[in-house]
Design a protein around this nucleic acid. Sequence first.
DNA 1: ATCTGACTCTTGAACGATCAAATTCTGGTC
DNA 2: GACCAGAATTTGATCGTTCAAGAGTCAGAT
Lengths: 323, 323
Amino acid sequence: MEKVTIATVAERAGVSRQTVSNVINTPEVVRAETRERVREAITSLGYRVNQAARQMRTGRSRLIAVRIEPGSDGINGSVLDRFLHGLTDAATLAGYRVMLYTAADDDHEIATYDDLLTAHDLDGFVLTSTHHGDPRTSWLAARDVPFVTFGRPWGAPDTHSWVDVDNAAGTAAATRHLIEAGHRRIGFLGWPAGSGVGDSRRTGWESTMTDAGLTLSAVAAVDGVDAGADAAARFDSAITAVVCASDSLALGALRARPDCAVIGFDDTAVAAAIGLTSVSQPLTEAAARCMDMLTELLDGRAPATPTQLLLPPSLVVRPPRRR
Amino acid sequence: MEKVTIATVAERAGVSRQTVSNVINTPEVVRAETRERVREAITSLGYRVNQAARQMRTGRSRLIAVRIEPGSDGINGSVLDRFLHGLTDAATLAGYRVMLYTAADDDHEIATYDDLLTAHDLDGFVLTSTHHGDPRTSWLAARDVPFVTFGRPWGAPDTHSWVDVDNAAGTAAATRHLIEAGHRRIGFLGWPAGSGVGDSRRTGWESTMTDAGLTLSAVAAVDGVDAGADAAARFDSAITAVVCASDSLALGALRARPDCAVIGFDDTAVAAAIGLTSVSQPLTEAAARCMDMLTELLDGRAPATPTQLLLPPSLVVRPPRRR
DNA sequence: ATCTGACTCTTGAACGATCAAATTCTGGTC
DNA sequence: GACCAGAATTTGATCGTTCAAGAGTCAGAT
């Protein structure tokens, strides 16, 4: 199988290298008849552009990078994995490929950016798990590197495009669902204050309860299944339902208070397996929109102002059953 | 920030381009003194090799590809995700980067190989989910593409290197554990016959039972939590324990037979969450060994005969608790 | 008949590295 | 001090593509 280059195609089609290149990159400047002839040569020879050569000339790689968490195989790690699946699909559709990297912390991650950019000419980044005081976005912005975050900037100025899920709307929907089912004393089991995501999830419950004129009787802030169970056990015994910031916490609540209706967050495999009602993030959708925004940036057809998109989660209701 | 190329470094160090290249790729041919001078120039300028240029000349990309399952967010998908995490770490350590791709089926996957190889000069592949009559390995082998599989060849000749987990040993350990705990009537809940993995898991239980002189009283072959529950419900009521081919099935068994001791397989987040004893695959280890084998192939220092490695899984015992 | 300009296509150079071959250095020997 | 072998270094070509600029063709206007 001989190596097929643009020159092979040119010879076969009886045109010059550049014309072949034009057929591939700017077909509209080539006469229709010639274009067809070249295309036939391309397919009959099975020609494919050599990305390395193109990259060297143009400085673009058609590669985007995503971080994969080092050892996240907990109950919640799967959220990012599902996002990654969606992103890979969306990137492939847009003609990009996804490259993975790991980093122990934000500083290492920034060092990796530097490497990926200079050594591999990466075209863009999709950042996940943004947080307060995130140094990564400013580093990238300062160097004019195209990037999008899955997660809002949390306090930093809104100068880049991002996609996020409306966490508050998720817990609000969960709370409303319980109220409509007749519950009046609904507790909230969440994470310690300070994380943007956790705080929003609490806010959704809080505002919905207040709007309905209900009292915010029971609240706890912990992490992990066992801590969740302990906290739920200490809830006022009059509580009949609990909204949780994660499926792990929900699992704890279920164990400590089998009498209560419990709703989790993230709709993980655990929730599906045990029939737990849970708030589901539209991760595939989020990934697709991230990719849309990123390709806009990369193709230079981005709107003047960065796009911000807050996606509504949905409540996956599962009928209670014997456990 | 000016662009730093090998020529910039050469000028700064007062040597030629080729000498800089030698310092990077074959340092032993450069005099120690010169080598040091060049290295200083490299670090002081922050030079990094341009992969595209190197790749064009050498035809190697230092990239390996791994398939990511399109929509696998079920209970079992997480196994491959955990493997992927380990592989990314191992690849980074070995100086490679991981590129992702998706494919609907084996044929699409082969078409993707072709694209990745010709367009991106991919150096190697790690295949997962090998199965009987897998067309992928023979395609790759016929083209002399370096690859390793996570999963044995299942019937195909052992002509390539692979790593797999000893499934039979896993269920054997689970069965032994139950026997030692005093159980005598132990059922098996597995998948329909035909899948190599499922059959091995069954074999481990079967041989351990036979060796212990126990009767193979209850066996079922289904898939999914609900089907698992139905099948377990039909088990002989004298059964006191069940070994399962997956955590999903275990969940079903647990629901149908709360009186039984149940052991799952894969040690997924679900198992950890509900306190289910489960067989754990050494995925990080498997990924690291896959990468070892692949780099051996890529560096041309592979042993004459392909390496085959069967890793023992471990039993994660979780104390039974109120559910 | 010549010119103009739009359209189409071709040519030579360049991207940044490595390969292969040529050249210069070094130290030891007679 | 000339000579030589081996080590160290340099030079020119090359990988496959795209950029920038140049060249040819043709219809319509002058």
